[in-house]
């Protein structure tokens, strides 16, 4: 019991943690398969990371160091409040440094800095079922996964090509895990999909409203679906980060004024800050 808050360590009661822990173990044993779990009401609305928070609460221990990002940023409302929630209910150390964290809860980004073996990446997932918008019935999507029947998904990607000339899906881009299950990587930009493949860290996914947990073990093959003549490609940017000058990172557009002024900066704030601390300077750094 945490004397300050009156809550159990990491908020959830032990029975709930055991239930989530059992689901996590099965999720790891069956990579990419969505394990149903008895998601609880959390002291935050659905859509704010109730699934990720429950997974984090179930795995967190006293010696963990927690980092929380929202679209790559450590300092947006969602990230700040979840970090404060665990600092308060679990009294764990928190950080914004990717390298120092042992548990990283994320909403829609994978950090730019390479993850390592001693880390767990926990994704907040809104809609875990990659086939949901193609087939609304859960009974049917279960059957499709059981039969590994993913033709529908290829038709959807093909229709993109027929309509736009290329695969126009840019986020929540479907992946095949360990050669079996097709999985929704959560609404991360497809830019991050290659980071999921052969990742040294354990990746856990929690969907609170939809009551599903799934996992990608470390060093597991994660392949973005594509076609031989339309291979998977990530977004590219035609300029470096305006603040730190980084190339090959995911950029956010920031409006500067009401006259069309804008700049593109790292979406991963920690990556950008560490680069600037190391002396890297972008084009707009002087104005920022």
């Amino acid at each position: 019991m945490n004397a300050e808050t009156g809550y159990n360590f990491a908020y959830l009661d032990e029975g709930t943690k055991r239930m989530i822990r059992r689901a996590i173990l099965k999720a790891i044993a069956i990579p990419g398969y969505q394990v149903p779990f008895a998601s609880r009401e959390m002291p935050m609305p659905y859509g704010w990371g109730t699934g990720g928070v429950q997974v984090t609460a179930a795995i967190l221990g006293r010696s963990d160091v927690l980092k929380v990002i929202d679209q790559g940023s450590d300092d947006t409302t969602n990230a700040v409040s979840i970090r404060a929630f665990f600092a308060r209910t679990a009294d764990v150390a928190v950080t914004t440094r990717t390298r120092e964290a042992t548990v990283i809860q994320t909403r829609h980004r994978i950090p730019e800095a390479p993850l390592h073996e001693a880390q767990v990446l926990v994704y907040q997932v809104p809609i875990p079922e990659p086939l949901r918008f193609l087939e609304p019935r859960e009974t049917e999507t279960r059957q499709l996964h059981a039969l590994a029947e993913y033709g529908l998904m290829h038709v959807k990607l093909y229709e993109d090509i027929a309509r736009h000339g290329h695969i126009a899906t840019t986020y929540a881009y479907p992946v095949e895990v360990a050669g079996r299950y097709v999985m929704d990587p959560s609404p991360t930009p497809k830019f991050d999909n290659p980071k999921m493949d052969d990742c040294p860290a354990l990746q856990l996914f929690g969907a609170g409203r939809e009551k599903r947990i799934y996992a990608v073990p470390p060093h597991t093959r994660v392949r973005s679906l594509d076609f031989e003549d339309h291979p998977f490609r990530v977004q590219t940017f035609d300029r470096p980060c305006a603040l730190c000058g980084a190339d090959g990172v995911y950029l956010d557009e920031v409006l500067l004024d009401d006259a069309g002024g804008r700049m593109f900066v790292c979406s991963d704030t920690d990556h950008c800050e560490e680069r600037r601390a190391d002396g890297h300077v972008g084009m707009e750094a002087a104005h920022a």
Partner: peptide, 19 residues
């Protein structure tokens, strides 16, 4: 210490299954 001992046992089993 039921809370923290259970957590450590779980993490050991989780890490063993994940790797």
């Amino acid at each position: 210490d039921p809370v923290h001992n259970a957590q450590r046992v779980f993490r050991a089993v989780m890490d063993a299954l994940a790797r």
